[in-house]
Each structure stands twice: as C-alpha cells, then as structure tokens.
C-alpha cells in the first residue's frame, strides 16, 4: 500500500524523504477547457471547481488540490470587478482605492456573506468531503503587502509607500485583519494549510528596506494569527536574499523562482524551509520530451535529496497554452525520477 498524498507531503515538509517527490501541476484553468466552459463559467460554480480539481488529480496525480480560482477574486471580494478573457486568468478591474485619502474610510469585507469568498469556501468544503484526509487542499491568501497592488494599482501603491507612510500603515492593518479572517475561514472549510501569495516579499519587486520595515513584520503578525501552517509564494519572484527573513517570519516553505539557482536556494533552505518549484511555466509550452525529462531531473537532483521539496511550476499557475500532453509527461517524469532514494543522482551528471 503506497503513501497517500497527505502522508507524502507531511514527510517532505518534515525534511525527510517520503516514497517519492511530491508534486503539483497548477493547471487550475485547464479543467474549464476540458469541460467545454469559459473561465468565467467554470469558476462561477463551486461544483465545477470540485469536479475540475478531481479531474486534475486523476489526470496528473497532483499531491495538492486547490479551490482558489485567481488573484482577481480578492478585488471581487472588496467590491471591484474582474475582467475575464477566454484564454487566461482574469485581470483585476479598476482599482477600488482611487485616491490615497480613501484609505482613511476603508473597511475590510466580512468573509461571512461575501459571495465570491463564500463560493471558494463551498468548493473547499465539497472537495474536502470528496477526498477526506488523503489529499491536502491548499487555501490561498494574497498578503496584506501585495494586496494593494490590485487595490490601488502598482504605481499609486509605490507612490503611497514613499509619500504617505501613515496611510500605508493603516492599509496594511486593514488588509491584515481581512487576510487573517479569510485564511482561517478556508482552514475551517477544509484547507490543510495556507499559501501566502506575496510577490512584494521578493527583492526583485520591493526594496530590502520595504521588506524589513513592512513585509517581515506584517508576515509575522499574520502567521501568528492563522490557525495552520503557512507557506510563502512569490509568484516567480526571486527569494535567495530573503531566505532568512522568510524563515524568521515563521513560514514552513517558500516558492523557488526559475530565475535563480535552485541548488543555491536549496543549500540555504535545507532543513529549514520546504521549496516549491521551480519549473518555468512559460517556457514549458514549447518543451520537447527530452526537455521535460532534463528539467524534471535537474529540479529533483538539486532540491529533492533529503526531502523538503515539492516539484511544481515557478509561478503557481500554468498557462492554458501549455497542453495536457506536456503536463502528463512532466507528471510521468516526476514519478519515474522522483522515487526515493534518489540513487541515480550520484550515478549521473545531471
């Protein structure tokens, strides 16, 4: 009897080697295409999302499931709109904060009674009922420091940081209150852990000064109030220079970007933080079978030994343009080359 996905992940997160490298292919939009639905139709009904996640598990063998639809959900929750397209995730519509002064009067939305959020909670609850404790479900929040990118637009947010620190601090407090409530609601509905999506924690995006002054204290505050394990995802953002800050904040794991050295990242994280990544989701669409094999082997060889690694893409979302055949081949390669112990690594020059 093999391990369940939950058992496999639990061991990997404890920095030990399970039966094989756990993996997740975040092809969360692909089921819509398979079911003949538009992105909007697919995500508008919890039962579609549940069916889609089960499809993904059956097709690719994902070790983690997730009912979170897309980042623009957050703007829907705050009363804004999402702009849908046929072949990708929706964008956030017009900012909900048009002038910085509006932050003084801003209140966070209540999770209870908020239709977009309740839809995700319903999906999570139904999926949990279907998979029980065998496959973990990840909940997702956008961090208080990254949420303003959608709430205000990135440029005005950067202007706010430098021009109105008083309003910035108020906005972060409001967002923290919202994020904690939203994370705990997902855990209560059946999520096993929370993915803290925070591109603003990456030094590729924000200055180190900002990360130390706002990103780190905010993360510490949020994590201390969430009733479960929390992992940070920087959506392709690099993380080597902030590994210590990520560990100090209390995260159990972090994303690995395709734009940095996975081996260097692993040596900094070994025994401290589980890595999730780092296949290049944008390049993946043009991979041939030999590329798939070599990319999977490269990632496993660099980050797999000793556990503490979940193979995934680097962004947390695989574009619809990457076809299912490629994803099936990636899954197949992980199952072949990811069996512990990874004795082949020493025998081959990867």
């Amino acid at each position: 009897m093999g391990m369940t996905s939950s058992q496999r992940l639990q061991i990997a997160l404890s920095h030990r080697e399970p039966d094989r490298v756990p993996y997740v292919l975040s092809a969360n939009m692909h089921p819509a295409r398979q079911m003949g639905l538009t992105i909007k139709e697919y995500f508008s009904r919890p039962r579609n999302v549940v069916e889609g996640q089960l499809k993904l598990h059956r097709m690719f063998g994902n070790d983690i499931l997730c009912c979170y639809p897309f980042a623009a959900l957050e703007i829907l929750a705050w009363g804004g709109e999402a702009l849908y397209c046929d072949n990708g995730p929706p964008n956030a519509g017009a900012p909900i904060i048009r002038r910085a002064e509006e932050i003084s009067l801003l209140d966070p939305p209540e999770v209870a009674g908020n239709q977009p959020l309740q839809g995700v909670l319903q999906s999570t609850g139904r999926l949990k009922a279907a998979v029980g404790n065998d496959i973990p479900i990840a909940g997702v929040i956008i961090s208080p420091t990254s949420l303003p990118i959608m709430q205000m637009g990135f440029g005005p947010y950067l202007d706010l940081i430098h021009e109105r620190p008083d309003l910035l601090e108020r906005l972060l407090l409001i967002n923290t209150q919202y994020c904690v409530a939203w994370a705990n609601a997902q855990l209560k509905a059946g999520a096993a852990s929370i993915l803290y999506s925070d591109p603003a924690f990456s030094p590729a995006i924000m200055s180190r000064d900002f990360i130390l002054q706002y990103g780190l204290p905010t993360a510490v505050n949020v994590i201390s109030r969430i009733n479960g394990a929390v992992m940070i995802h920087m959506a392709s953002g690099t993380g080597v220079p902030v590994v210590n800050e990520i560990f100090r904040a209390g995260f159990v794991g972090m994303s690995a970007s395709a734009e940095e050295d996975l081996g260097a990242l692993k040596s900094l994280c070994r025994g401290k933080l589980t890595l999730v990544g780092d296949l290049n989701a944008l390049a993946m669409g043009s991979w041939r079978s030999e590329d798939i094999e070599s990319e999977v082997k490269r990632a496993i060889a660099l980050a797999g030994p000793g556990g503490g690694f979940v193979l995934s893409d680097n962004h947390g979302e695989i574009p619809l343009m990457v076809n299912e055949d490629i994803l099936l081949a990636v899954a197949d390669a992980v199952r072949r080359w990811g069996q512990y112990p990874l004795n082949w690594i020493n025998a081959e020059d990867v």
């Binding site: 940081i161 030094p203 590729a204 690099t238 220079p241």
Partner: peptide
Amino acid sequence: GDISLSQVY
C-alpha cells in the same frame, strides 16, 4: 538582481 522593481519605478 541587485535592486528592486520599486527602485527602478
């Protein structure tokens, strides 16, 4: 990787 996007902006 020496400076951030926010600094460039």
